[in-house]
Simulated assay, not measured.
Amino acid sequence: MEKLESQFLQDKQERNTAMIDVLQHLTAIKNETTFGFEDMRGEFRSLFEAYDEKVSVYKTQVDNITTHLATSEEEINNRIIKTMEELERVQSEQEERLDTCRSEVNSLRTHITNLETPIIRLVNMSQQWPVPPSTCAATQVLTAASGSIAVVEAGKYDNNIDCEWIINLPAGNKILLKWIYIDMEIKDNCPYDYVTVKNLNTNQLEYGNTMCGPLLPNNLLIESNRIRIAFHSDGSNTGRGFELHYLGTE
Rank of each mutant, 00 (worst) to 15 (best):
M40A: 12
E43S: 15
E43Q: 09
F44H: 05
R45A: 14
R45I: 05
S46H: 07
S46N: 10
F48Y: 15
A50F: 06
A50H: 13
Y51Q: 12
K54R: 03
V57K: 08
K59C: 06
K59D: 10
I65H: 15
T67L: 15
H68D: 11
T71P: 00
T71Q: 09
S72T: 15
E73S: 10
E75C: 08
I76Q: 04
R79D: 08
I80R: 13
K82I: 05
K82S: 07
E85L: 08
E85C: 03
E85I: 06
E86K: 11
E86F: 07
L87H: 13
V90H: 04
Q91F: 04
Q91V: 04
Q91A: 12
E93A: 04
Q94S: 09
E95D: 14
E96Y: 09
E96C: 01
C101K: 10
R102T: 07
R102W: 04
S103C: 02
S103K: 08
S103H: 10
N106D: 09
L108F: 13
H111I: 03
H111G: 01
T113W: 07
T113E: 13
N114W: 02
T117D: 12
T117A: 11
N124S: 06
M125K: 09
M125R: 08
S126C: 07
Q128R: 08
P132D: 05
P132Y: 01
P132G: 00
T135E: 02
T139F: 08
